[in-house]
Amino acid sequence: MLRRLLRIVLALVAVGFLGYGLAQNWEETTGAVAAMSPWAVLGAFAAVLLGQFFMLVAWREILAGLGTRVPLRTAGRIMFVGQLGKYIPGAVWAYAAMMDLGRDHGSPPRRTFATISLGLVINIGVAISIAAATLWTLDAVRQAWYLVLLVPVIILCLHPKVLAWGLNLALRVARREPLESVLPGRTVVVAVAWTALGWFVYGIHIWLLSGRPDLYVIATGAYAFAWATGILTVVVPAGVGIREGALVLVLAPVIGPGPALAVAIVSRLAFTLADAAAAGISFLLGRQVPRSVPAYADQNGSGSTALTPDRNLSGSPEA
């Protein structure tokens, strides 16, 4: 109860600082929002949706590499509907919802848990790498140089053997059965590629909202930096307030405090609406799994089913 209260307080503090900055630059910010082209706002929303689609493809690739191959629409239902839990204080809700939805569609909870965790690690690694490569000349970002130290650690953790050990350790802590297979190295490379493509598309929405044709590179790095900062602040649900503050920190010296606040606010709104739209579309499209796809019993005999045969650590098919 105390931890939940602390999370709520921290979220309110973050939002309070954002509100204070908005109040201090109210006229400039509202003017910047009013000056935004409706087509730019609509384009930003479309870019967010497209970026989410690429992230979904990466997520599905990881799930398939771990032994459960599902149609893209089913993966979308598991990922997009389940991740709405991130708006509730505490990361456990999104995990629990996605694991439950995964079970409904043939993915054992341990595989869904591993897929979520690995997808998050890849996202953080790619986001920090992009931010470091695009924003190293900005003083505000150089002050957070220590975040770059996470990149080699994440690369090391993505080695199949290290990855299998880490995920099985997390599963033991969560009192789940260990994974039956090691994620192939090719799957990791493909997931990283799709994730990077998603981040480059996400950059388009900040670029459109900024109204500066010359700022695509900085816009991409700015959002990557802001997202990584928000997600690493685990006590605040969905990085509310933290992500916007980091985005303003990067963009304000380039386009001014008011326009930077306007971009941060509209960006958050675009992502919130895109989350809801993606969840709604995926819920409708993923309600049924094609009957022609065979189901296989889970290794532990719990009654969960997978849509492809499991493979053990030696690579041989499970009985």
Rank of each mutant, 00 (worst) to 15 (best):
T112Q: 04
R111Q: 10
A114E: 02
V162P: 06
D104E: 13
A219R: 04
G125Y: 00
L169F: 12
G102R: 04
I154C: 03
I124H: 03
I154R: 00
L135T: 01
V148M: 06
R103F: 15
Y202G: 00
L150N: 09
L169V: 12
H159T: 11
Y223F: 08
H159F: 10
V148K: 02
V192A: 06
I204V: 13
G203D: 08
R172E: 15
S117W: 00
V182R: 15
A219W: 01
Q143I: 13
W207I: 00
S107A: 11
R142D: 15
H105L: 12
I128S: 03
A97K: 00
H205A: 11
L215Y: 10
G106L: 00
R110A: 00
G125M: 01
W165T: 13
W136Q: 10
P184M: 05
I154Q: 04
A224R: 12
S117R: 00
Y146G: 11
L171M: 12
G198L: 04
V188F: 14
S181H: 11
I155P: 02
G90V: 00
L179F: 05
I122L: 01
F200E: 12
T115R: 08
F113V: 01
V173C: 15
V182D: 03
D139Q: 10
K161S: 14
Y95E: 04
A132P: 11
V173I: 12
C157I: 04
A164H: 14
L156G: 06
G166A: 04
V190N: 01
L179A: 04
C157E: 09
R175M: 08
V126A: 07
G211D: 13
V182W: 03
V201D: 05
I124Q: 11
P109W: 07
L156V: 15
G166Y: 07
A132Y: 07
T112Y: 11
P109N: 06
R103A: 13
G203I: 02
A219Y: 02
P108W: 00
R111M: 10
P152F: 00
V153N: 03
G203T: 05
I206C: 02
M99V: 09
G230A: 08
R176Y: 14
I218K: 07
S107E: 09
R212G: 05
L215N: 02
V121S: 14
G198T: 04
G90Q: 01
T137D: 14
R212Y: 08
T115Q: 10
A170M: 12
A131W: 07
G166I: 14
I130L: 14
G198C: 14
L101G: 04
W93V: 09
S181I: 11
W194A: 10
T115I: 09
H159R: 07
I116Y: 10
G230E: 04
T115G: 12
A131V: 01
M98C: 00
M99A: 05
F225A: 05
M99I: 13
T220W: 01
I218N: 15
G221S: 07
L101S: 06
G221P: 12
A219Q: 05
L183M: 03
V141H: 14
I124R: 01
G185S: 11
V151F: 00
C157M: 12
